[in-house]
C-alpha cells in the first residue's frame, strides 16, 4: 500500500492473544483531515485494532505507518503528541481523586509543554465547558461533561489524530448529539484526522465518510457512508447490520 499520501496506514495487521487470533490481516489507509469509521459487533476486533494503533498493545505483526514513517513497537513521546485517544467511559478514564485541572495539565507535563495556565481555560472553552469546571472532580460532572473533559484532554497537546473508541455510547442520546456536533466542529477547525470505532452504524456514518466493517477479526467490507445509507452493500454481514439499524428508524 502506498503510504505517501496517507496520514495513517495499517497494513496486514495481525494481533494474537495467546492462541486466539483477534485480528487477522487488517489493512486500511486514512488521508489527513478525514474521518475513518470501523464498525462491528463485540469480538469483531475493532477496538483491538484501535488499541494497537494507540500503542496500548505491543504484541502485533504487520505494519503501521504515521505520515509515511513506520511505527515502532514501543511508541515515542513524539507519537503521543501527534496521536491521542478518547475512550468510551469517561468516568473510567479520568482519575477520581484528581481535579479536572490536574487531568488537563497531565498531558502538557508529559510532553514538556509549558503554559498550562493559559492552555487549560482555552481547552475548556473549546469543548464548551464553563470555567467553573476546572477545579471540580470527575464525580461532580455529568457524563456528557466528563466526555468533554476527555476530549479536551486529548486535544490539549494539539495532536493531528484522534482515536475514538465508542466515544458516545455511554451517553444519553441528547448528549450524544452534542458531543458528535462538537467532534465535527473540532475536526473542521483543526483539520483533525479521526479513526472512530463504534457498534452504532448511524453514529459512524454521521461522522465518517468511509467505513470499514469488521467481523471475526477481518475487514469484510469497506464502503462509503453514502453507499451504506443507500443500501449498496456487498457483504451479507454489512447488509444484516444495516437492516437492524434501519428497521428501528421507521416509525
Amino acid at each position: 500500500m502506498d503510504g505517501r499520501f496517507q496520514l495513517i496506514v495499517v497494513d496486514n495487521l495481525v494481533i494474537r492473544f495467546g492462541r486466539v487470533e483477534a485480528v487477522s490481516g487488517v489493512s486500511f489507509a486514512v488521508a489527513r483531515g478525514t474521518a475513518w469509521g470501523i464498525v462491528g459487533e463485540s469480538g469483531s476486533g475493532k477496538s483491538t485494532v484501535l488499541r494497537a494503533l494507540a500503542g496500548l498493545n505491543e504484541n502485533w505483526s504487520g505494519r503501521m505507518l504515521l505520515d509515511g514513517e513506520e511505527l515502532p513497537r514501543r511508541r515515542t513521546r513524539a507519537f503521543f503528541r501527534r496521536v491521542q485517544m478518547v475512550f468510551q467511559d469517561p468516568y473510567g478514564s479520568l482519575h477520581p481523586r484528581q481535579t479536572i485541572d490536574r487531568a488537563l495539565a497531565e498531558p502538557l507535563v508529559a510532553q514538556g509543554i509549558g503554559g498550562a495556565d493559559a492552555a487549560i481555560p482555552r481547552a475548556l472553552d473549546e469543548v464548551a465547558l464553563p470555567q467553573a469546571v476546572r477545579f471540580r472532580y470527575p464525580h461532580q460532572l455529568s457524563g456528557g461533561q466528563r466526555q468533554r473533559v476527555a476530549i479536551a484532554r486529548a486535544l490539549i497537546t494539539s495532536p493531528e489524530v484522534l482515536l475514538l473508541d465508542e466515544p458516545t455510547s455511554a451517553l444519553d442520546v441528547s448528549v450524544q448529539a452534542e458531543v458528535l456536533n462538537l467532534l465535527s466542529d473540532l475536526q473542521r477547525e483543526r483539520n483533525l484526522t479521526y479513526i472512530m470505532v463504534s457498534h452504532n452504524l448511524a453514529v459512524v456514518a454521521h461522522l465518517c465518510p468511509m467505513i470499514a466493517v469488521m467481523q471475526g477479526g477481518r475487514v469484510v467490507e469497506t464502503l462509503s457512508a453514502e453507499a451504506l445509507r443507500a443500501g449498496r452493500t456487498t457483504h451479507p454481514h454489512t447488509a444484516e447490520l444495516r437492516a437492524l439499524s434501519t428497521e428501528l428508524e421507521e416509525p
Binding site: V173, S174, S184, A202, A205, A225, R229, T246, E249
Partner: peptide, 28 residues
Amino acid sequence: ARAEHPYTRGLLACLPTLSHPQARLTTL
C-alpha cells in the same frame, strides 16, 4: 411519529439515522 411533547419529539430528532442524514444533529 405523532408524539406531541417537545421532549419526546426532541429525543427522536437528535438521533443520527442512516435514512435521513443531517449535516448537523439537532440538539435538545
